[in-house]
Amino acid sequence: MIKKLDRKKVRTRKHKSIRRRIVGTAERPRLSVYRSLQNVFVQIIDDTTGNTLVSASTIEKGAKIENGSNIEAAKQIGERIAKKALEKGITTVVFDRGGYVYTGRIKAIADAAREAGLKF
């Protein structure tokens, strides 16, 4: 009998499959996205050293985001991460959608980051 997998296990399996192909380097770090039901978290990671170079989320102190679980909040986080990355000298990244489907908040983050100056 086949067990029914829950959503978290399916997403984790997809993310592991994606991570086999996507690796962030010092020249082109990985932009990783995690979304919960109420918030969105984005990090730019150098996988060769294992360091987080830049991060942004809907719950950080300067964000001033009322509802962290909608597309408008995701757009604001995409713009914030791009601005922080450009200040650190990061211009190109590899986008890691974290096993999530590329629609809604995930797409809004990517589009906003592109418009703000990051290249994927």
Rank of each mutant, 00 (worst) to 15 (best):
Y100F: 15
G62K: 10
V23E: 08
K75E: 12
Y100Q: 13
V10E: 04
T12Y: 05
V23Q: 04
K8P: 00
V10T: 04
K83L: 15
A108W: 09
N70T: 09
G50Y: 01
R105Y: 13
E87N: 11
R21T: 10
R105E: 08
A112H: 11
K61P: 05
I109Q: 08
A74W: 03
N39A: 11
I90P: 05
E87R: 13
V40R: 01
A108D: 08
R80Q: 07
D47E: 02
V94A: 15
R7F: 04
A112I: 10
L37P: 02
Q76I: 11
S32P: 05
D111G: 15
I45E: 00
R19W: 07
I45W: 01
V33C: 09
L5W: 05
I44H: 01
P29E: 10
K3G: 01
Q76K: 14
F95H: 09
A73W: 06
T12H: 09
A112N: 09
N70V: 05
I65N: 00
A26T: 12
R21H: 11
T91V: 10
G99R: 13
K4G: 01
L53P: 00
I18G: 04
P29L: 12
A74N: 04
K88C: 06
N67S: 06
S17A: 15
K16C: 05
E27C: 13
K88Q: 13
G24W: 06
R7I: 03
L31C: 11
I77W: 00
N39F: 07
A74R: 02
T52Q: 02
T58Q: 04
